[in-house]
């Protein structure tokens, strides 16, 4: 199993932000995305997740293999931690107990989610990755608002995932403990704006 991207271009807000992207991620490897703010890290992840269509190029992934984790955690304040986990467990039809243990949420299970701190919420959000049991993780700034101990927990979870043959693409500014493959998005910024099928460009 592998994820391969050929000649990919992504757009945001009617303008091309990335061009000529080519990479292959084999099983068990992680790709770290680097680049300054606005370089297109989130756009690339959203395109890979299938939320927006690529401007051109191809993405080859096995079906139903991707789990995407955005800036926000998708945590429902009105529900308890256990109910939040159970919801995603039901959605993916997988048990959630193991994920709760890995992210050290066992002691918080009966707490309502609105009483959690930002870091605890993030941990709850990351536990979803573990529940899904999908091989390709797309992570957007996963370690934001986590303390050192929680980052360590996350690193353990990530390494375990990779050891089991999983893959990950991580957009981050900090060290994640797995500096496996690094891709700097800076050079892929299009020098000249040329959109083959963008709305506005069609009028030029």
């Amino acid at each position: 199993m592998e994820l391969s991207v050929t000649d990919l271009a992504c757009q945001r807000g009617g303008a091309l932000v990335l061009q000529n992207l080519n990479f292959v991620i084999p099983s068990g490897r992680a790709l770290i995305l680097r680049g300054r703010n606005g370089a297109g890290k989130t756009t690339l992840l959203r395109t890979l997740a299938g939320l927006q269509p690529p401007s051109c190029g191809h993405i080859k992934v096995p079906p139903d293999s991707i789990i995407y984790s955005s800036h926000s955690d998708g945590v429902k304040d009105m529900l308890t931690v256990a109910e939040n986990l159970m919801f995603w467990g039901n959605v993916f039809q997988k048990p959630y107990a193991n994920a709760a243990r890995q992210m050290n949420l066992d002691g918080l299970l009966s707490r309502p989610a609105h009483s959690l701190s930002a870091g605890q919420k993030r941990r709850l959000g990351l536990a979803r990755l573990c529940i899904s049991d999908r091989p390709i993780w797309l992570l957007d700034e996963p370690t934001i608002s986590l303390d050192a101990a929680s980052v360590a927990l996350f690193e353990i979870m990530l390494r375990l995932h990779l050891q089991n043959g999983g893959m990950a693409i991580i957009a981050t500014h900090v060290d994640c403990g797995v500096d496996d493959m690094i891709l700097d998005l800076g050079p892929f910024r299009p020098v000249k704006q040329l959109l083959p099928d963008g709305f506005d460009e069609a009028f030029l």
Binding site: A15, Q193, D200, E201
Partner: peptide, 17 residues
Amino acid sequence: EIRSRRLQALLLRERMA
């Protein structure tokens, strides 16, 4: 409408260049 879109596209290109 077409002209206004063309204008937008040109402005966008100018900003990117």
